[in-house]
């Protein structure tokens, strides 16, 4: 970043070789395949391994890793100057509050409603009628109380 001119047309930047691009591609593909593998193991073990909560945690971490590689390498943000990185990164931290508070609020609403609106809670326990058509080939009926 030794330029002093206003518009950086990039002719003198040697960092745009294609090697990191392909490396990023393989990382993204690998992470996606790993997520698929986790999901397959989870289905094959009838949801016992990995436990759903741990599985979701891993999905979220892997998703953030993919997002990082796309933004940093494909969108090239990692190679911009700090001013630009911060002007994007600092507002994005609002998402931390945004996610925690809204999910918490949703969970709290569910708990309060289940406690004080018994009718709603009982309605939610009613089983759906068996689905028509292609849904009839289930190997076994789902056990009640299977984690969501």
């Amino acid at each position: 970043m030794e330029h002093t001119k206003t518009i950086d047309t990039g002719h003198s930047e040697p960092h745009f070789d294609t090697k990191p691009i392909w490396r990023t591609f393989w990382i993204l593909l690998g992470i996606t395949l790993f997520e698929l593998l986790l999901a397959t193991i989870h289905i094959k073990t009838d949801g016992r391994f990995p436990p759903k909560l741990a599985l979701n945690g891993m999905y979220l971490i892997l998703t953030c890793a993919k997002a990082f590689y796309i933004i940093a390498e494909f969108m090239h943000l990692r190679h911009e100057i700090k001013n630009l990185i911060m002007t994007v990164a600092i507002p994005a931290t609002l998402f931390i509050w945004f996610i925690i508070s809204f999910l918490w609020d949703g969970g709290s609403y569910r708990d309060l409603r289940n406690r004080y609106d018994r009718h709603h809670f009982e309605q939610q326990q009613v089983k759906a009628p068996p689905a028509e058509g292609g849904e009839g080939h289930e190997p076994a009926a789902k056990k009640p109380g299977t984690p969501e």
Binding site: Q124, Q125, V126, K127, A128, A131, A141, K142, P147, E148
Partner: peptide, 10 residues
């Protein structure tokens, strides 16, 4: 048309 994972109405 899809039921919940626990079989209840979605």
């Amino acid at each position: 048309p899809f039921p919940n994972a626990d079989g209840s109405v979605a």
